[in-house]
Computed example of a mutant assay.
Amino acid sequence: MTAARVLGARALGRALLARQHLLARGTVTPAAMIHHLGGLQAQAVPQPPHLGLLSRLEGFAPEGLDELIERRAVVRTALQRGTIHLVTADDCLTLRPLLQPVFDQGLRAAYGKRLVGVDLAALGAEARALLEERPRTFQDLGALLAVTRPGRDPAALAQAARCLLPLVQVPPRGLWGRSGPAAHTTAESWLGRPLDGEPSLEGLALRYLAAFGPATVADLQKWCGLSRLTAVLKRLAPDLVTFRDEHDRLLYDLPDAPRPDPAVPAPVRLLAPFDNLLLSHADRTRVLPEEYRPRVMTPNGIVLGTLLVDGLVAGSWQLTEDRSGGSAVLVRPFAALGRGERREALAEAERVLAFAGRGGEVRFEEAG
């Protein structure tokens, strides 16, 4: 048997950047990019999805995403890892039933003790009726559910509904320059279609490899939040190619997916806060040096916007707005930038300012 080819961290990083359209920006539609990526992390409002597309698409403007949200072509919904993602309508209906075990586990772990004795089927049915009557915040929903369940924690009741039902956040939540409370309704009601009745774990794995491979089973599980997916990749193995990483871990990949030469130059990029590039592998070191991880992933769960230099995280950045409505991009390199790298970082930051459309300045903090 021929030994599997070894892919080093740099080769894995270049493959990931190519698939994420961070080596060369794409010219596809925003909806096509969102589908290819399997969604964009959307925990924070509203910057991450818009900025995630800006870093990956040529000619992208805020209204290019806002229009999709308003006409229900894309939705904000809890999916991978139980966190809010912006996905296409079709992906919402397909991915949500596949990821139901993530929500079942989250409900048991976080709220199980507070829901002992609660009829969850009845709770789900009542919550569905309330949310399909009109979109509601979790605070309002919990208060209404507690009326028929006196003595129960309203927050736990609302979170149970979140886990039991496929919910979407309705606009203006998530629009650029506008927002609103996180009001929810069911995906079926909002999209006018049922959930996919035959979703495929194999399809989920192939989608992941297309956007994030080559990858281990642990990487796939980290991205989606599911466990015990070894059998899924083994079933797919005859149609895949395999490699080993420098730690002798087995990597799976699509035969025709891009795997650029590790020497291919990687341009400077500004990644959005909470970007899935940093959240979708068990071993993040292909793009995130371990020594920098605590500087971009805070103890309270915030993932900062990051500066990529030569394909690796080399700093953080932030888009801010002052009281007069002006903007600034603050870039914080972790080590001194070369002249060319600083020039590229400046151009990327100016691109963000132009996108924000409010004027402003770029400021570099001293490296360190």
Score class of each variant (00 low, 15 high):
L233C: 04
A31G: 08
D283P: 02
E58C: 05
G174V: 07
P154G: 10
A122F: 02
V264L: 14
L53E: 04
G151C: 07
R207Y: 13
P48E: 00
E344Q: 14
V102D: 03
P199C: 13
A182T: 05
D140N: 12
A182L: 09
L229N: 02
A345Y: 04
L312E: 10
L240A: 09
A272L: 08
R342W: 00
R249Q: 15
D140Y: 02
E341V: 08
P135C: 12
L278W: 11
R152G: 04
V241F: 10
G203I: 08
A44M: 07
A155G: 00
V268G: 02
F60C: 01
L307M: 12
A129P: 05
Y208H: 14
R228Q: 13
A210Q: 13
A129K: 07
I302K: 10
D219F: 10
G225K: 00
L37T: 00
A257M: 07
A218F: 01
R14L: 15
S200A: 15
P62V: 05
L79E: 07
A125V: 06
R293I: 08
S179E: 10
P294F: 13
E366W: 10
Q20D: 11
R136K: 11
G360D: 11
Q139G: 15
Q105S: 14
V296L: 05
L277C: 10
F138G: 14
V102E: 02
L51R: 08
D66S: 12
L51A: 05
G305P: 09
V287P: 06
G82T: 04
A109E: 14
L220D: 02
A9S: 15
P258A: 11
A215S: 08
R114D: 05
G64N: 04
Q169Y: 02
Q221E: 15
A143T: 03
G340S: 07
L65N: 10
L206M: 14
M297N: 04
Q47H: 13
L79R: 06
V232F: 11
R173H: 13
L51Q: 03
A78K: 11
F138H: 14
